[in-house]
Design a protein around this nucleic acid. Sequence first.
RNA 1: GGCGGCGUACCCAAGUGGCUAAGGGAGCAGUCUGCAAAACUGCGAUGCGGCGGUUCGAACCCGCCCGCCGCCUCCA
Length: 488
Amino acid sequence: MTGTKAPFRPRTPGHVGMYVCGVTVYDLCHIGHARSAIVFDVLRRYLEAKGLAVIYVRNFTDIDDKIIARAARDGIGWRDVAERFIVEYHRDMDALGVLRATVEPKATDHIPDMLALIAGLVEKGMAYAEGGDVYYRVAGFPRYGRLSGRRLDQLQAGARVEVDEKKHDPLDFALWKTSKPGEPTWDSLWGPGRPGWHIECSAMAMAHLGQTIDLHGGGQDLTFPHHENEIAQSEGYTGMEFSRCWMHNGFVTINEEKMSKSLGNFFTIREILDKSPWDRVVTAEALRYFLLGTHYRGPIDFSDEALRGAKAALDGFYDLLGRLREPEGKSEHGGGNEIARAAIEELERQFAAAMDDDLNTAQALGALHHARAEFNRALGKVVSTGMAQQAEAALTRHGQILGLEFHATRRGQIHEAAAHLGARTTLEAIGTVVGGTMLDGDVARLVEARNAARARKDWAGADVIRKQLADAGVILEDRPDGTTRIKR
RNA sequence: GGCGGCGUACCCAAGUGGCUAAGGGAGCAGUCUGCAAAACUGCGAUGCGGCGGUUCGAACCCGCCCGCCGCCUCCA
């Protein structure tokens, strides 16, 4: 609220009520939506990992001009539009590993709450009715503009021409508006109509989290006027502080420019997942990694190159996890145990320090990479199976806080998985068939044949098989002890 | 016009007064290796848009300038 970082202290120790503005469900989500969802998903995961009980409320705006317009265009009902895109939202966000919120309220389920709020504001003189519409009297709320660092006189000077002459002041905003013919309507004290945009968030936040919430989040573009208006409505009504902490994520840009529909420079989550050369699971994780690689408040520029970089960085973790999990090269008398032990401690410390400092996920990823290098170094000096397990657990535990699941068997672990799964099932479980569908049994036979060739120093023959497997998306890595690591 | 943000190596990026300016990607060299891959080691900004200033000390604070972006209207 003060525009500075401040220690986060929830109202009730050990409990956090957080509200994040979700999406208006009239179209597929783009990566800007993904960023917001992922940032606050990570915040929620981290708070929970710290042992706090989090109630996370993320709404759906399911009544809005754009939904009505879309319904008219598609020739279906507005409720059908909303329902369809809620399903699509979940499809995309599930793919990105965004957890469902504790409560995902829809605006239209809270019309009575909104009406109660509006009525209260009118009673207190904070709002006024005018010909079936109800407006909030901004001038009656002295703190208006504090969140976004604006002053009333400046706003008025710069205000664009308002067509709506029902407003007493151009800055006033609609709490309730008369429906046009054919539009969805609800009955109210001021006649049939529908809610303005801002009131829904106040109503839903208070309905689920009480009159003062611990934390409110959303995209940077919502700071003004949406969140400013939420504060005005809520505090005007309750006389209490609405949210103790505000967090706004920066934009995703394309070629350094904000994504927007008018510029046509936006990517939906769907098309990124569909058009990627990699499997969906791999792409989704790379996208998440990419989005967490920059501090949430700053802008982030999306490009194929950036996504490739994220994927390459993740590959390093997968290679390490494969080495930690394989039984080969482990010994109880290894000299790497101390290195690994120290690295785990360092990771715990650095990761927490980064996350505690305004959710610095970029720095947290740096800590994870440092641990990765240390674990690799330890493996070079040999570690025990127990220490390898601890290292693996440390990596996956911290990865999970960021929503990076290191999905067990993406690459490099097929020989483990294949032991107890049918070959076909394994391929599906792994989810990353890099352009090949060779069955595990065939792979195993070819590896055996190649090793036989190597044993009799038939290098040409061995290389033919290596090539054959490579074409099927299987990469072989020979270990010093003569065994072969299989990656696909 | 008002408000705000950004500019760190080839690319991305953390760091916002004081140890050798994190980390990732790409690159080069070396170790290992039949080859390859992976891994490890080393190299790479005497400098953090430019110029001044404050300070024992600044990428980090102040001033001016240059460049880029966003908000002020629906928008994650």
